[in-house]
Design a protein around this nucleic acid. Structure first.
Lengths: 189, 189
DNA sequence: GCACATTATGCAACAAGTTGCATAATAGTG
DNA sequence: CACTATTATGCAACTTGTTGCATAATGTGC
């Protein structure tokens, strides 16, 4: 149930609506935990029944009314307790690796192209992170916990993307060196 | 539904029972796709209704009977078709990163300890991969698709673990440099 | 004026993953 | 002889995540 905690983390900074949260989960905290709006609205209700968030209706005339959620003292206490629990990293699940695992039974050329696409995605990601670093974390004070934490998150992103970029480059080369697969030549348009 | 394909990939090599598959998903292919036995038995039934696997009952006297599954021609065709589809990498979900994201509202010392634990895990993983490389992939021929694919999978593991190890080391240092959090000193036993 | 994007919330159905339990035989350990 | 591990399969209940749809008002571009 870490979606709940990811939401609490956002609300610990400032009260937000489900809509606002959905946008956050598309960018900032979304780099570490993805969720769409249905999940978020559903989870907010759970958090409310647990007493970890409170909500207030904000009446609007020109727009649909909103429901703004804020974290409660119980919510903050829960967040701290949760931060003390150890959570093993989520098990890896990667289609592309499964395809590589059975490269002998599969369309190699297509897999190679997919790696090229992935390389592109990783490069874009890295680029984005670099832009964020320049604009937001230029001079992070070394004793501000909040800032250090976010900088470390960003650096994890760097490390992750760079590792994948290097791997993709190597993989593309090695797959290109492979003899034409009969599979590919007979079935591809 | 990539669990199905991961199963087919295993069956493409040799017929296996659900029990055998569960063991594979704990080691070899489990490095890229995790699943427990309940998921596997459930999925095997789906694969059968799709006509992608066939099963036969193996009667045993000293042990419970087993049901051995093998891939059908339709199954192989499906596997190839699936390998041509592009599958975006699964979105990242990492509790630890969420904790870092809100380091100001959380037990810093405990998070630091969790990173130490994670570092340990990554080192063990790397170690395991290195042993596998030495024992299995000493002289991988460059033109054997199956072998190259698996070697690339292993190298992805290397890249991934090494990147995390470096990151953990840096993170531990930076968190240690942070001033003692009041939170930690007042709540930790 | 019409199509489309934005703001804002939500239901319903389904697919996938998790947890706990049940069964049943044998082999090995103390 | 009791306890535990291994082989082998499975149900049921639950939580999470995904997909498609619905509503409803306003602002923007052509």
């Amino acid at each position: 149930m870490a979606l709940g905690e990811a939401i609490l983390v956002c609300l610990a900074e400032e009260p937000l609506t489900g809509y606002d949260l959905a946008k956050s989960f598309d960018t900032s905290i979304g780099f570490f935990w993805r969720a769409d709006h249905q999940q978020i609205y559903r989870e907010l209700k759970r958090l409310k029944t647990n007493g970890w968030v409170a909500d207030e209706l904000v009446v609007q005339t020109s727009r649909p009314n909103k429901r703004r959620y804020s974290i409660t003292p119980d919510g903050r206490a829960h967040l701290i307790a949760w931060s003390r629990e150890s959570h093993p990293p989520a098990p890896v699940k990667d289609d592309l690796m499964v395809k590589l695992y059975s490269l002998a039974d599969v369309d190699i050329d297509s897999v190679r192209r997919q790696i090229v696409d992935r390389l592109d995605g990783h490069r874009n990601r890295l680029n984005l992170y670099e832009r964020i670093e320049r604009s937001v974390y230029r001079d992070t004070p070394e004793d501000d916990a909040g800032a250090v934490g976010r900088l470390l998150g960003l650096r994890a992103g760097f490390a992750y993307e760079r590792a994948w970029i290097r791997w993709c480059e190597d993989a593309i080369e090695r797959l290109s060196a492979l003899p034409e697969s009969t599979l590919t030549s007979s079935h591809t348009p």
